[in-house]
Amino acid sequence: MNVNAPIALKKVDSSVGVFQAMVSVFLRDVRVAFRQRQDLLNPLLFFTMVVTLFPLGVSPEVAFLKQSGAGILWVAALLSVLLSLDHLFRHDFDDGTLEQLMLQPQPLFLLVLAKTMAHWLLTGLPLVLLTPVLGLMLHLDGNSVATLCLTLLIGTPVLSLIGSIGAALTLGLRSAGVLLSLLIIPLYIPVLIFGTGTVAAAAEGAQVSGYLALMGAFLVLALTLAPFASAAALRISLSNS
């Protein structure tokens, strides 16, 4: 008997639960973001600046602001999310954590979903929370502000999810900003139209449940399909790096 013969190393058969792995990815992203707070503030500052500049630049009249306030807030929120998208995978790509994420045995699309949810929590949700203040500043009435917050609450996760596809696709490029906007803005347009449409309907006193249902449909569609597309795009981007 050869004592030097290798003993067979047991193959790993146990697996970590998918949910546990997703929570770990989510928590790591949140923790990293809170260690770098100025990055968290950037989209919020941008959002506030755009919204405050409109009354100064266009017209401070109540009638104008009442009419276009919801649109201003929606466009500003959309652009803030767009600005923050480049960071979604970029740092992870540069330091190699994205590689390790891809090599985890759990399905990649679920891990990407966890990352996207962390992105929404750190950019989309603060925008929603800031909206009532800025809405009152633009003379929106209570009903409009409530509807606006609701549409943003449903709409910003859609923006993050769709944006993750673009961020993943442009990952390998050196200056991804413009291309990312070109790819993503057309996909944002329906969300924007229905978001502002809902608030306009609410301001006229019409029923908004139909609009909200459509926005909910957007969210479900993005939630189920976008992670697959992002995961596939990430594979392509990493394959070429």
Binding site: V16, H91, D95
Partner: peptide, 30 residues
């Protein structure tokens, strides 16, 4: 993937996290 470990040029370490947090995150899915 469960039976293979890859360490690349880029070590997969987040600069803002501590070694313990990094290692915990790297092992969490495995």
């Amino acid at each position: 993937l469960r039976n293979m470990m890859y360490l690349g040029h880029r070590p997969g370490i987040k600069h803002l996290l501590t070694p313990l947090e990094n290692l915990r995150a790297l092992m969490a899915g495995r």
